[in-house]
């Protein structure tokens, strides 16, 4: 445990120093890695901890992005105010889905289908909303690129990097304590065996709702980050099911239900795939789809040889 803590501190220190020597491209890859680590951590609360498979987490990214982005675009409400609004909106969405599913005892694959359906309905809905700009998208004004303006979330790439690094660190610490609290124990009990959990006095409905609320609230931060980092939002893209799948890949590869899984998975997937694409480009080979093939191969390898993910294997091997 102390060894793990020391490793973590070393990692955090080197990550904090990274912008000093990484170029713009390196920084953008690092931001992408941390983004997926964060979103994966948020998804992991629902699936990894509580065992509720969501295949529609793009819903929360999109709703949060549009709420904070829209408030900024239309009324110049700064994201520091838009963020709480986005958190509330996403939590409400999560609670509605959870209520419908858990009240009517929809679980497993059917629950996953319900989450997809909601993301799809929302995509279609947003396509027809004038307020969001419809299928034509919403574009946020890009300004003030050189100074840090945290309230408006406008600044140089390093600011976005440190913001997502802080989000990742906080999410990690929050999940660390959640797992060791009553909530973590109750969620894992529900994941392992609902009947036994209920027989030990756990109100399964309430605690599942809590898991969905926590996960959707956490994911909304990723959505707001996404909106102000990329500055453009299209329902067709942000709510797309491939976005939801993208979010779950890192924790699945790294280890569902583990604290390090989402981080490790994001490093392996995004880091290596960007690295391979870059190296090939440097050699003068531009192969379209190489990233997707790489994702497929990693996924295949993990499923075949490390069905619990990379982290459980590493932690056993190195006694972390």
């Amino acid at each position: 445990m102390t060894r793990t803590a020391a490793l973590l501190l070393a990692l955090l220190a080197s990550l904090a120093a990274l912008p000093a020597f990484a170029g713009p491209y390196g920084l953008s890859v690092a931001i992408l890695i941390l983004y997926f680590a964060y979103a994966g951590q948020a998804w992991n609360v629902m699936m990894g901890f509580a065992g509720q498979l969501s295949l529609g987490h793009a819903l929360y990214v999109g709703v949060a992005g549009y709420v904070a982005g829209g408030l900024f675009f239309h009324y110049e409400v700064p994201p520091i105010v838009g963020l709480p609004a986005a958190v509330i909106a996403c939590t409400l969405f999560g609670l509605v889905i959870g209520f419908l599913a858990f009240r009517f005892r929809i679980s497993g694959v059917y629950f996953a289908l319900l989450t997809i359906a909601f993301a799809e309905f929302t995509r279609i809905g947003f396509d027809h909303l004038a307020w969001t700009g419809g299928p034509g998208g919403m574009f946020l004004k890009v300004a003030q690129r050189n100074t840090w303006d945290l309230a408006n979330f406008r600044g140089p790439p390093a600011m976005y990097y440190y913001a997502i690094l802080a989000m990742c660190s906080l999410a990690f610490v929050a999940c660390f304590f959640l797992l060791r609290s009553k909530a973590g124990f109750y969620w894992q009990a529900i994941r392992e065996n609902e009947d036994a959990a209920q027989a030990l006095g756990i109100n399964v409905f309430r605690w599942k709702m809590a898991a969905v609320a926590a996960s959707s609230a956490m994911t909304s931060f990723a959505g707001v980050f996404f909106a102000f980092y990329y500055n453009n939002l299209f329902p067709e893209q942000i709510f797309n099911i491939s976005r939801s799948i993208e979010i779950i890949l890192a924790p699945v590869i790294g280890g569902v239900g583990t604290l390090f899984g989402p981080i490790l998975g994001a490093v392996v997937l995004t880091g290596l795939s960007e690295g391979i694409t870059e190296s090939l480009a440097a050699l003068g080979w531009e192969i379209p789809g190489v990233k997707q093939v790489f994702y497929g191969l990693v996924l295949l390898g993990v499923v075949m040889f490390l069905p619990n993910g990379i982290w459980p294997f590493l932690s056993r091997k190195f006694k972390l």
Partner: peptide, 29 residues
């Protein structure tokens, strides 16, 4: 109650299994 057909939380340790039950009356970990 106990179950005739046992229902352990297989992914957890013995201690973690029992702690789930204990949290009903205990506020802290």
């Amino acid at each position: 109650r106990t179950f005739q057909i046992v229902k352990p939380f297989a992914g957890l340790t013995v201690l973690e299994n029992v702690m789930v039950g204990a949290f009903l009356r205990e506020k802290t970990a």
